[in-house]
Simulated assay, not measured.
Amino acid sequence: MDGETLARVGYLAIILVALGGWVMVEFRQRMGQALRMGLAWGLIFVGIIAGYGLWSDIRRDVMPIQEVAASGAVEVPRSADGHYYLTLVINGTSVPFMVDTGASGMVLGSRDAERLGIDPESLAFRGQANTANGVVRTARVSLDTVELGPFRNENFGAFVTEGQLDQSLLGMDYLGQFRMEFDGAKLVLRQ
């Protein structure tokens, strides 16, 4: 043990001795109650540690994620809100999308565009798109690489919206390259 680790262990031991001494003085007439409280807090601590350790297993139920099946198909579970969400890797950066079969193009929100190194201030917003929130202006961009599991596209065209878009949308110009099947509570994409 180096000096710093030894000092930390000593400091922790002093804190534990002080806390233990306080418990002994405070509960000297009620030692049974002190033991019950200590046991309760110990179980709470163990429960938190177990929850943390099991989070990777629980996460699949709480926040479903896409998977690549052995056949090479991409399987996307339906989220609790009824939508399907895919994460594409664009130019090496993971970008979450909501599957929108009513959208014609791949639409990036300004925050996602900035994460990809696209400066929305430098874009010429010459196009328009009709959305559920009205008409928004759009700018066309080209994405060097777009990857979904084993599938890869190069120089793929997309749009960046001028207005606020909380969630980037994955439209039919991208989804059209796949055979889409809705199998119960999941979407299956195959080429």
Results as ranks from 00 to 15, higher is better:
residue 16 L to H: 03
residue 50 A to S: 08
residue 96 P to A: 02
residue 181 E to Y: 00
residue 189 L to E: 01
residue 8 R to A: 06
residue 75 E to A: 10
residue 46 V to M: 11
residue 19 L to A: 15
residue 110 S to V: 04
residue 146 V to A: 07
residue 104 S to G: 09
residue 139 A to P: 00
residue 20 G to M: 00
residue 188 V to G: 10
residue 84 Y to I: 03
residue 106 M to C: 07
residue 28 R to M: 11
residue 35 L to C: 10
residue 154 E to N: 03
residue 37 M to D: 05
residue 93 T to Y: 01
residue 28 R to Y: 15
residue 83 H to A: 04
residue 107 V to K: 06
residue 187 L to A: 01
residue 3 G to K: 02
residue 107 V to Q: 02
residue 180 M to W: 03
residue 187 L to W: 00
residue 48 I to G: 05
residue 114 E to R: 08
residue 14 I to D: 13
residue 101 T to C: 12
residue 29 Q to E: 14
residue 33 Q to N: 04
residue 182 F to H: 14
residue 76 V to M: 05
residue 12 L to V: 06
residue 131 T to E: 10
residue 37 M to W: 12
residue 118 I to H: 12
residue 110 S to N: 02
residue 112 D to M: 02
residue 16 L to T: 00
residue 172 M to G: 00
residue 171 G to L: 06
residue 59 R to H: 11
residue 42 G to H: 04
residue 155 N to D: 05
residue 46 V to H: 02
residue 187 L to N: 03
residue 183 D to G: 11
residue 191 Q to I: 05
residue 7 A to S: 13
residue 88 L to V: 08
residue 31 M to T: 13
residue 72 G to V: 10
residue 104 S to Y: 08
residue 108 L to R: 02
residue 17 V to F: 04
residue 71 S to V: 13
residue 161 T to R: 01
residue 101 T to E: 11
residue 117 G to P: 02
residue 145 T to N: 11
